[in-house]
């Protein structure tokens, strides 16, 4: 199986330059649906699902490989190599921002631009560092997630995952976007919210744009500012968009900010 199959990679658009979009925790490549098409006229757009989400091959889920963000970064590098990417632009939302940074350390030639949408190198407060959450709150989140995966059952999974020739089957189901196996989703939540990648910021050599939303409780302003201060030469843009997903709530503003940078 190729990395592109494993990660359900979809390629569109035309152009010499490539732009890779990586989704954050809670969703899949669908969350770029209002942003990625805007770049198809001048970029080859590459959309992927991490192995834990969307149409990725969940049988490839290996708890030890994906026990930290490095395993996900390896996948990004592998996809880049498979598509022979050089000097591409990586756009990572939420936890994928850190995955992009790790990938840029592993393969410095892969990306010339990093666009970090709502990045956080650490979600849990630590001494003087404000991540936004306490360890207890993250623990509650992990428990709570189970309560909202009631709709996922073993009987439904094949309908959602395995019927590309009958998409109407999936569409009949409510909440059919961004579904995945609850156990894997919980593991990804744990990896995401327990991660600490502060030490990886300093060595970033790639041009970096940070898109910081107003009123983002997942990645508050202090966190975006921390990332900005620790990545030399990075550019910080404070958006009018509120919440954690400007790619969905304010696609026009997001597209404009990315376009101005690349």
């Amino acid at each position: 199986m190729t990395a592109c199959t494993r990660n359900n990679v979809h390629i569109a658009g035309a152009g010499e330059r490539a732009m890779m979009f990586a989704h954050g925790f809670g969703c899949d490549q669908n969350m770029w649906r209002y942003v990625a098409p805007a770049f198809e006229d001048s970029f080859r757009t590459i959309l992927l699902d991490h192995v834990c989400a969307g149409g990725s091959d969940l049988s490839a889920y290996d708890p030890s490989k994906y026990g930290d963000l490095s395993g996900y970064a390896d996948d990004v590098v592998e996809i880049g190599r498979e598509l022979d990417l050089r000097n591409a632009t990586f756009i990572g939302h939420s936890v994928s921002a850190m995955i992009g940074i790790l990938a840029s350390h592993k393969a410095p030639d892969l990306f010339e631009n990093l666009v970090l949408v709502g990045p956080s190198p650490r979600y849990i407060n630590d001494g003087d560092y404000t991540g936004g959450f306490t360890a207890e709150q993250i623990g509650e989140l992990l428990d709570f997630l189970s309560e909202n995966y009631m709709g996922w059952s073993a009987a439904m999974a094949p309908m959602i995952m395995g019927n590309p020739e009958q998409p109407e089957l999936a569409e009949e189901l409510t909440n059919s976007f961004c579904r995945t196996d609850p156990e894997i989703a919980k593991a990804f939540a744990r990896v995401t919210f327990m991660s600490d990648n502060r030490a990886d910021l300093a060595g970033v050599k790639t041009r970096t744009l940070i898109l910081q939303c107003s009123e983002d409780i997942i990645a508050p302003f202090e966190v975006g500012d921390y990332v900005h201060r620790h990545i030399a030469g990075s550019k910080l843009v404070i958006m009018n968009a509120t919440g954690h997903c400007p790619n969905l709530s304010a696609p026009a503003e997001t597209v404009a900010a990315i376009r101005a940078f690349v």
């Binding site: 809670g26 969703c27 959450f133 989140l141 709570f144 997630l145 909202n148 954690h244 997903c245 969905l248």
Partner: peptide
Amino acid sequence: TAGRIFYETHFAPLLRM
């Protein structure tokens, strides 16, 4: 808090989509 994180990572994105 857990609900807020869920709201931002699942609820709001899914509603938009």
